[in-house]
Design a binder for these strands. Structure first.
Lengths: 159, 159
DNA sequence: ACTTCTCTTTTGAATTGTTCTAAACTGTTG
DNA sequence: CAACAGTTTAGAACAATTCAAAAGAGAAGT
């Protein structure tokens, strides 16, 4: 693989390097700022992944999918790094892990309190607005335990 | 707008209940009968596994765990058969698959509508009485889709 | 710019949980 | 009890994820 900088047509490189701005406060936090705010070094791959992830507010990705997406965007990142990064972001509170399928992990850029529709047929995840669903009467957790969070998954299928 | 649960009109609060405890005839059904009733040949291994599984009313097992348990009980069954059997029982409505962890599948002998506490720390699953939790205002599923079921997982951790 | 220190990334192997395959086996029926 | 279809088995194959060792790259100091 050739070096990232220098040996490539300008268009591709530009897309990535233009993200370099420091003055003033951006309306939307820049990827770099987000990474830094999470207490992580803003490395090329973390910033790039953050850029892809937080472009939209409600994204649901698997590690594989993000890895592919990065590749298509011309970002060279190993799959292991994608996994590492997703977990680090999750630990840092930038992402939410959603469990809907034993077999693959989904990560959600929406970290607010909300729930999901899950279409098993094609593995699609759809957000349910946070204030839509209400769960009541959750019983007290077992002794010595506290509720970490309540996940609601509405499994849907073709009518 | 609450086009809840497919064709159900105007229901606002979903009671996730239907605790299905048969009053009189509890363990009346023999393992063999259960297997047969499910339309499966009562082979030695299926009957043995059914015997282990349905001894208690609320059991949560993984394939590995059941396989080990069988071994300890002196039943010689291959892991593949355990997997096959668990899936067949699930398809036949004798078991419920519970998704709480991307990585392993749990099977529950309680087939009534109910929910779970999940202790991530040790992978323990604890039943929440079926009529305890209520979920309200589930929005209408995407076009052409119907709600298959609503899963609620209360993740708990050491206080 | 150069060094050094530490944190990151990478590649590929290793693990884990689950499914597949082909051959051997066993209920059931005639 | 023969014959067939349904089952089981061991092990290979798989998919998703993690691990390990070595190379690479920020950050800070000089």
């Amino acid at each position: 693989m050739s070096g990232v900088f220098g040996a490539r047509p300008a268009a591709k490189v530009l897309k990535l390097s233009v993200v370099r701005k420091k003055p003033g406060k951006e309306a939307a936090e820049s990827p770099g700022a987000k990474v830094r705010a999470a207490g992580l070094r803003p490395t090329r791959q973390r910033v790039a992944l953050a850029g892809l992830l937080f472009r939209e507010h409600d994204r649901h990705v698997t590690a594989e999918a993000l890895h592919e997406e990065a590749a298509k965007a011309g970002v060279r990142v190993s799959l292991a790094t994608v996994y590492n990064t997703l977990h680090q972001f999750t630990r840092a509170g930038l992402l939410n892990e959603v469990v809907v399928d034993s077999g693959r992990a989904y990560f959600d850029t929406n970290i607010g309190d909300h729930q999901h529709f899950y279409v098993e047929e094609n593995g699609e995840l759809i957000d349910i607005p946070g204030d839509a669903i209400a769960v009541s009467n959750v019983p007290a957790p077992p002794k010595g335990m506290t509720v970490d969070r309540v996940d609601v998954v509405v499994r849907v299928k073709r009518a």
